[in-house]
C-alpha cells in the first residue's frame, strides 16, 4: 500500500466513525485518538472492527519484519514515520525542530526494541507507548536545556533552518560515531549498497558489516539518551 493509500484508509476509518473505548491490555482511546489525529478523538465507543482494520496491516508487517523480511520492515517504518510525524507535529507544532528528531528516535526504538512487542497485543498500542515515552523524554531534556546559559549572541542572528526533516541532531551524533562504523553506515545508507557490496568496499566481512550497522544504530540511540544528562 502506498503512503497515500494509508492516508485515505485512515480517512475512511474516520468517516466510518470509529474508535473503540478499549484496546486490549493498553490504553486504547488515548492511542487511537492521538496517533490517528484529533479528528477521531471525539467518537469513542463504536465497535472493534475499525481497530482491527487499522492495526492489522501494521501488525502483519511487523510480524514479517520480525521474521527477517527487510522489505516489510522498511514498509512498516515508512508508514510509522508518517503517523509519528503527524503525532509529534500535533504535540509540538508542525515547525518545531524536534519533531523529526523524535520521529527518528521513535523509529530507532521500534527497530532496536522490537523484541519487546508482544504479538498477542495490538502493534499500534506498543508503538504509541514508545512515541509517548520519547515525547516525555524530550520535555524532560528541554527543561534541562532551559536552565543553561545562552552560548553566544550569534544565536540572535541565526537563520531559521528551513528543512526540518534534516535531523540535525542525529547528523551531529552520526559524526561522533567511530570511523569504522561511520564508513559502513555511509556506504549502506548514502550509496544504498547491499551488505555484500558494502563489505566488498570496506574490506570487511559481510557479518562484520552487519554487526557494525547494528552497533551504529544502538550507538545512535544511546547518544540520544545520554544527551543533556
Amino acid at each position: 500500500m502506498t503512503l497515500a493509500g494509508i492516508y485515505t484508509s485512515n480517512l475512511r476509518l474516520t468517516l466510518n466513525g470509529g474508535i473503540p473505548e478499549r484496546l486490549g491490555d493498553f490504553g486504547g482511546v488515548q492511542l487511537w485518538s492521538s496517533l490517528l489525529g484529533a479528528t477521531v478523538g471525539g467518537h469513542p465507543g463504536i465497535g472493534g472492527m475499525a481497530v482491527e482494520a487499522f492495526d492489522a496491516p501494521l501488525k502483519a508487517l511487523m510480524l514479517k519484519g520480525l521474521g527477517g523480511d527487510a522489505a516489510a520492515h522498511a514498509e512498516l517504518l515508512t508508514r510509522m514515520a508518517v503517523l509519528l510525524r503527524r503525532f509529534f507535529a500535533r504535540k509540538l507544532g508542525a515547525s518545531d525542530q524536534d519533531v523529526e528528531d523524535l520521529v527518528q528516535e521513535t523509529l530507532l526504538a521500534i527497530h532496536l526494541k522490537r523484541e519487546t512487542w508482544d504479538s498477542a497485543q495490538p502493534f499500534t498500542a506498543w508503538a504509541y507507548a514508545i512515541a509517548r515515552y520519547r515525547l516525555i523524554d524530550l520535555y524532560r531534556r528541554r527543561r534541562v536545556r532551559r536552565s543553561e546559559p545562552i552560548e553566544s549572541a550569534e544565536a540572535l542572528f541565526a537563520e531559521e533552518v528551513g528543512d526540518s526533516s534534516a535531523g540535525a541532531d542525529v547528523e551531529r551524533l552520526l559524526s561522533e560515531l567511530p570511523e569504522r562504523q561511520r564508513v559502513v553506515l555511509k556506504a549502506v545508507k548514502l550509496d544504498e549498497l547491499s551488505t555484500a557490496e558494502a563489505a566488498a568496499r570496506t574490506g570487511m566481512s559481510e557479518s562484520a558489516v552487519k554487526v557494525s550497522v547494528h552497533r551504529s544504530l544502538k550507538a545512535l540511540m544511546r547518544r540520544v539518551r545520554d544527551e543533556d544528562r
Binding site: 519484519g65 520480525l66 521474521g67 527477517g68 523480511d69 527487510a70 522489505a71 520492515h73 522498511a74 517504518l77 515508512t78 514515520a81 523529526e100 520521529v103 527518528q104 523509529l107 530507532l108 527497530h111 522490537r114 523484541e115 526533516s165 534534516a166 535531523g167 542525529v170 547528523e171 552520526l174 553506515l185 549502506v188 545508507k189 548514502l190 544504498e192 547491499s194 551488505t195 552487519k210 550497522v213 547494528h214 551504529s216 544504530l217
Partner: peptide, 19 residues
C-alpha cells in the same frame, strides 16, 4: 541523516528476531 536513509539502514539490519 534523513529519516528515509535511517529507515533504509534499519531495514538492512532486519535480522530474524528471537521469539
Amino acid at each position: 541523516m534523513k529519516t528515509d536513509d535511517l529507515i533504509a539502514v534499519m531495514a538492512n539490519d532486519a535480522k530474524p528476531a528471537a521469539r
